[in-house]
Each structure stands twice: as structure tokens, then as C-alpha cells.
């Protein structure tokens, strides 16, 4: 029964989680900690820390880990699946809609109108890394600048840049 409840809760979270990972966490906390009382606030903070330190999107990590804490491996799988389901369906429906009506001038205008907002949300994500304590000292600033230069001028593979920066972190901190 808890599995079904978990499924329904995460469908609901997935359906209303607009705005990416960091917008998802408060929603998840409301449902998991306040409404269902599956986890305490302290346990949920653990979930967030682990989610940030683990590869993969934060929302997915948080869903997997919360589901696991509540109902084991199966719970983790169900929560992750339920969290993804609404967004996959909605993206497919939107794509279908645009395929049929994308040539409509009004709809085309809306789609193009959204483009500057895409940049806005990305700038906000960058800003939240800075204000969220992602860069704490001069060393961090230097890593950011060097990574940026390497990415822009040498077109280095981003994965290699991430791993090298992490190794540099282990060495200098």
C-alpha cells in the first residue's frame, strides 16, 4: 500500500515541479515531510546533501533516495519512475502539439518569445550556484575562470573539465 501511496505522491510532485531541480525540492519537502510525514526535516536535509553530492539530476536523486528511505529498493525505483512519468508525457505532448501547430504564426511567436526566458532561467541557475556557496574562496574563482577559458577557447570535453576540476579540488583543499 505504501508503494501505491509513494507512486501517487511522486506523480503529484512530478506534475507540479516546474523550474528544475532546485524548484522541486521545496515541493518534495512539503509532500514528504509535512503532508505524508514519511521523513523528518533532518532526514530530508540528508536527502538534499546526498542528492547534491551524487551524479545525476538533483530532482531525480532526491526522488530515488526518498523512495529508498521509505520503502527500500522498490520504493526508490517507484518514486523515480513516478517522478519522471508526468514530465515525459507532457514533453511528448508538447512536441506533438508543436509538430502539428508549430507553423501557426501565433504559436510560433509564443515559442520564439520563450527563448529569452530560457537564458534568464540559466543565468538564475548560475547565480544560485554563486549565492548558494558553490564558490567560497579565491581558489574557487580561479578554477571557474580557468575552466571557462579552457571550455571556450580549447573546446575541451566538458566531462574532462569537470573531472580535472574535481581532482584539482582534492589536491588544493
Amino acid at each position: 500500500m505504501i508503494i501505491l501511496q509513494l507512486f501517487l505522491s511522486f506523480i503529484q510532485i512530478g506534475l507540479f515541479a516546474f523550474g528544475g531541480g532546485y524548484a522541486t525540492l521545496p515541493l518534495m519537502e512539503k509532500e514528504i515531510v509535512l503532508s505524508q510525514q514519511w521523513l523528518t526535516h533532518a532526514e530530508f536535509l540528508d536527502v538534499i546533501t546526498i542528492s547534491q553530492l551524487t551524479p545525476g539530476p538533483i530532482g531525480i536523486n532526491a526522488a530515488t533516495f526518498t523512495g529508498y528511505k521509505i520503502a527500500g529498493y522498490c520504493g526508490g525505483a517507484v518514486a523515480t519512475f513516478a517522478f519522471c512519468l508526468p514530465s515525459v508525457i507532457i514533453v511528448l505532448l508538447l512536441m506533438n502539439f508543436l509538430k502539428k501547430h508549430g507553423t501557426n504564426p501565433q504559436i510560433n511567436k509564443v515559442v520564439k518569445g520563450i527563448r529569452p526566458a530560457v537564458i534568464t532561467l540559466m543565468v538564475a541557475a548560475a547565480y544560485s550556484i554563486i549565492t548558494g556557496g558553490g564558490i567560497t574562496d579565491l581558489k574557487g574563482i580561479i578554477i571557474a575562470i580557468v575552466s571557462f577559458i579552457v571550455l571556450q577557447t580549447h573546446k575541451m570535453n566538458p566531462i574532462i573539465v569537470l573531472v580535472l576540476a574535481g581532482i584539482v579540488g582534492i589536491i588544493i583543499y
Binding site: 540559466m122 548560475a126 578554477i143 580535472l164 574535481g166
Partner: peptide, 16 residues
């Protein structure tokens, strides 16, 4: 420390 080093690179990635 790995993530302390990688996070500024994450920022660089997003900016690029």
C-alpha cells in the same frame, strides 16, 4: 573536496 573543486567548473559550464 572533489565537489568543492568541481562546483566552480559547473558554474563555468553553465556560463559557457
Amino acid at each position: 573536496n572533489f565537489f568543492k573543486g568541481a562546483t566552480p567548473a559547473v558554474l563555468a559550464l553553465i556560463i559557457s
